[in-house]
Amino acid sequence: MNQEKKSKTPAIVFDLGGVLIDWNPRYLFRKLFDGDEERVERFLAEVCPQSWNVQMDSGYPFKKAIEERCLLFPDQAQYLHAYWERWDETISGDIPDTVKILAELREAGYPLYVLSNWSAESFARVRAKFPFLDWFDDMVISGQIGLTKPNKEIFDYLLEKVGLPAGECLFIDDRNENTEAAEQFGFQTVLFTSPEEFKSYLIDRKIL
Rank of each mutant, 00 (worst) to 15 (best):
Q184P: 00
S58G: 13
D34R: 12
S119M: 07
G143H: 06
E153V: 11
E85S: 08
D75S: 13
V47N: 09
S92K: 15
A182D: 07
L158Y: 05
L170R: 00
E38W: 03
I203E: 15
D156P: 03
G59Q: 02
I141M: 00
G143P: 04
I145E: 09
P25R: 06
P165N: 05
G35V: 02
Q3S: 13
A82W: 04
Y60W: 11
M139S: 11
S194W: 06
G167V: 07
K152I: 10
E89K: 00
E160I: 09
E196N: 10
V47W: 08
A45H: 11
F192W: 08
P150M: 01
S119P: 07
E168W: 07
K149I: 09
P195G: 06
R106Q: 14
G35T: 01
K206I: 10
C169I: 03
F171V: 01
C169S: 08
E121W: 02
L71K: 15
D22N: 14
D173G: 00
L208K: 10
F192L: 04
S116M: 09
R42G: 10
A108H: 13
A11Y: 00
F132T: 06
Q144K: 15
I101Q: 04
A65D: 11
Y27N: 09
G109D: 00
V54W: 11
L191I: 01
E121H: 10
G93R: 07
E196A: 13
W87M: 11
R39P: 06
I12N: 02
E68G: 07
D36A: 07
E121D: 12
A77H: 06
K129T: 11
L102N: 04
G146I: 09
K149H: 08
L202P: 07
T90D: 04
Q50I: 14
D57H: 10
W23T: 05
G109T: 04
